[in-house]
């Protein structure tokens, strides 16, 4: 088996909750609570979960945009969390990110050209003369006219801006791209354009993706493997087809059954979960899902379920599987 490009072990991120004049820490929001996974070269790992499950924090912690509390991140054989500043800066060429909100992710004061030149300036790539050519070829590659380099972000639609965001990530020729809800803010017709673009770019540049999303159909479409998170913990990981045809964790089952199917005659056996997501500041004891789980037993309230491989490359954390 080839060695994983990205390996994450027991990643933890707690945000302190501070109160009072002295800003004493009175508790922690356990945004990410022990997540481990590996992504192979050229693979797409989908990460799904509802708001507050820690998927975005996880993505940013891997890139050290948020400093993780604990854990180990190995990228291409190097321990990312132990790198010093200059080493980390160099490492950022290899790992890039595309953000959700195309309106917030581009500097409104920079032209599209300036935005795309920025990464090359930071890493001193190409000669200044070649850079503009590179900008034009990047724009064309993501399906935008090269004249757009002179325009400002507010002149573009959401889909076009997202293409610019993707071009910026690609400007440094990364190996890994973390896609943090890249199509969630886009209209469906534009969403499909961007998804196709991402697939083409992956083939062309041999990219490895971590695709974070809340939309299960999108994740199913683009991912080779899928990881389901609940309240900062892993609920289930399996190959995409396996997970969607044969979900094992009760949360995954409920999640899949909750998606509205665009077919008026579809037979639905919907599992409607009761109640809301518990607060990650005060997660339930035992299995974090037991408060909403339709099949929970006493054991679930007391013991944290172990992470087990129940079938070949199908892992789940549930006492009842």
């Amino acid at each position: 088996m080839t060695e994983a490009l990205l390996q994450v072990e027991e990643l933890v991120k707690y945000f302190p909750i501070r109160r009072g004049v002295l800003q004493r820490t009175v508790g922690h929001v356990k945004a990410v609570d022990g997540i481990s996974f590996a992504v192979n070269q050229g693979e797409t790992l989908g990460v799904v979960g509802e708001s507050g499950c820690g998927k975005s924090t996880m993505g940013r912690s891997v890139l050290r945009l948020i400093e993780p509390t604990k854990g180990k991140v190995t990228f291409n054989g190097k321990n990312v969390l132990s790198l010093n500043k200059p080493e980390m800066r160099a490492m950022r060429r290899e790992m890039q990110i595309v953000f959700q909100d195309p309106y917030a992710s581009l500097n409104p004061r920079y032209t599209i050209g300036q935005t795309l030149l920025e990464p090359m300036k930071i890493h001193n790539l190409h000669s200044p003369g070649e850079r503009m050519q590179k900008v034009h070829s990047l724009l064309e590659r993501v399906g935008l006219a090269s004249e757009y380099a002179r325009r400002f972000p507010h002149e573009f639609s959401g889909g076009q801006r997202q293409r610019v965001g993707i071009a910026r990530a690609l400007a440094v020729n990364p190996k890994l791209v973390i896609l943090d809800e890249p199509v969630a803010a886009l209209d469906v017709s534009v969403q499909s354009q961007v998804l196709n673009l991402l697939e083409d770019l992956q083939d062309e540049f041999h990219l490895t993706y971590v695709f974070i999303a809340h939309d299960l159909s999108v994740v199913r479409h683009i991912s080779d493997r899928v990881m389901v998170l609940y309240l900062g913990r892993m609920a289930e990981v399996a190959d995409s087809e396996e997970l969607f045809t044969n979900p094992l964790h009760p949360y995954t089952k409920a999640l899949l059954s909750a998606i509205p199917v665009p077919d008026p005659d579809a037979k639905r056996e919907r599992i409607i979960l009761q109640g809301d997501l518990p607060s990650p500041a005060n997660p339930p004891s035992g299995c974090p899902f037991h408060t909403r789980c339709p099949v929970a037993v006493d054991k679930c309230r007391q013991e944290v379920p172990a992470w087990r491989e129940v079938k070949s490359s199908h892992h789940v954390a549930c006492h009842l599987v």
Binding site: S192, N196, L216, S217, H221, F244
Partner: peptide, 19 residues
Amino acid sequence: CIPKIAGERKRLVPIEGNV
């Protein structure tokens, strides 16, 4: 152009252009 939750995974057929 919407990805399906079940059935065969196919390349999406987007609507080209913008509104």
